[in-house]
């Protein structure tokens, strides 16, 4: 299989996943704000914090108002992480490998992009937002479903998986990082019910609430939620599950030794750390480590299997 094709499939997986995740965090934030008392409601800024694109945001927007943030995350083409940009990028990746992915997938992706583009104005309104984002999430899931149901489960499929799970692991850690930090002042007993709401919203950002309930049988609170999101073996959005799935894909690829070493380090790191025991600052530092490791794994995958960067080619 050509390196270029592998790379495009990987990015197809990543971009579709990113579009879906962004749609999820916007939906959940809207619900969360309705449930929190006005004084402590964190507003919309945390969503930009999650994506890490604050500098770009501030370059173009005056304040973190609902309208600005939602536009930035849904349809701003200057923001490479906006839903529209991600679907556009996924579509470009898919277009160059159209002989490789099943035709219906291309059609569905094309249609989803056109929807994201054409219905954007409606998606920006409070009333139309929910429907818009739901369509994006369903469409992304549809693409994943079509691919798993119709594409050859060969090397290309492993790259699709790698893209999807690395993106997902990255997003899970970002959501935890931002959402666990800034909500409530410590030790305020009268805000207890709201703390529960905060952690429920963290779970819901990843559609993890139901799964948590079934699997943990304890009330929703910081420690168990962190353990669940980092370490649960079978919840498909836990960091552990994402890394485990990536490792399985890596093992099926040729020349996978060094990438497996990087993934192995990451896995051991996850096993040996108990996030619930970390205080907020330690948790933040730990998440930084995990994200760096995910970045390293991406680098190793690119170095081993993808086309060398153009610059290196020109120098050669």
């Amino acid at each position: 299989m050509l390196s270029r094709v592998a790379e495009n499939i990987y990015w197809l997986g990543r971009y579709v996943e990113r579009a879906e995740n962004t749609a999820r965090i916007v939906t959940v934030n809207a619900n969360l704000l309705l449930d929190l008392p006005r004084g402590i409601a964190p507003g919309w800024r945390p969503l930009v914090d999650i994506t890490g694109a604050n500098a770009l945001f501030e370059e173009h927007c005056k304040d973190y108002s609902e309208r600005n943030v939602v536009r930035f995350l849904l349809g701003d083409e200057r923001n490479g992480g906006s839903i529209l940009s991600c679907l556009g990028a996924a579509r470009e990746s898919c277009r160059t490998i159209r002989d490789f992915v099943p035709r219906e997938t291309w059609e569905l992706l094309n249609e989803l992009y056109l929807y994201a583009h054409d219905a954007l104005a409606k998606g920006m309104t409070k009333g139309g937002r929910h429907t818009y984002l739901k369509y994006i999430i369903l469409g992304s899931q549809g693409i994943n479903g079509l691919l798993s149901g119709t594409m050859l489960h060969d090397q290309g499929y492993e790259f699709l998986h790698l893209g999807r799970f690395l993106e997902r692991a990255d997003m899970t850690t970002r959501i935890i990082d931002v959402r666990s930090a800034n909500l409530l002042p410590d030790e305020t007993t009268d805000l207890r019910p709201f703390e529960t709401i905060q952690w429920v919203s963290v779970l819901k950002s990843m559609t993890a609430y139901q799964a948590y309930r079934r699997s943990e049988q304890v009330r929703v609170q910081r420690g168990p939620v962190l353990r669940f999101l980092f370490k649960h073996p079978t919840f498909p959005r836990s960091v552990r599950h994402c890394i485990e799935s990536s490792r399985l894909s890596l093992e099926r690829l040729p020349r996978c030794e060094s990438a497996l070493r990087v993934a192995g380090r990451l896995k051991r790191n996850l096993e040996s750390t108990e996030p619930p025991r970390l205080d907020q600052q330690q948790l933040h530092a730990y998440i930084d480590d995990v994200q760096t490791a995910i970045g390293e794994l991406h680098q190793e995958i690119a170095r081993t299997w993808f086309l060398p960067p153009l610059a290196a080619e020109a120098a050669a």
């Binding site: 050509l2 390196s3 002989d99």
Partner: peptide, 30 residues
Amino acid sequence: LAQQMGCELVEGRDLFVDTDDCVHMRTVDG
């Protein structure tokens, strides 16, 4: 045609010429 012949469809950047003057394509297998 690539599909019908069972060949790879490549772009210029998929190929390189090595010091031995042979042409290679970059694949995930090397």
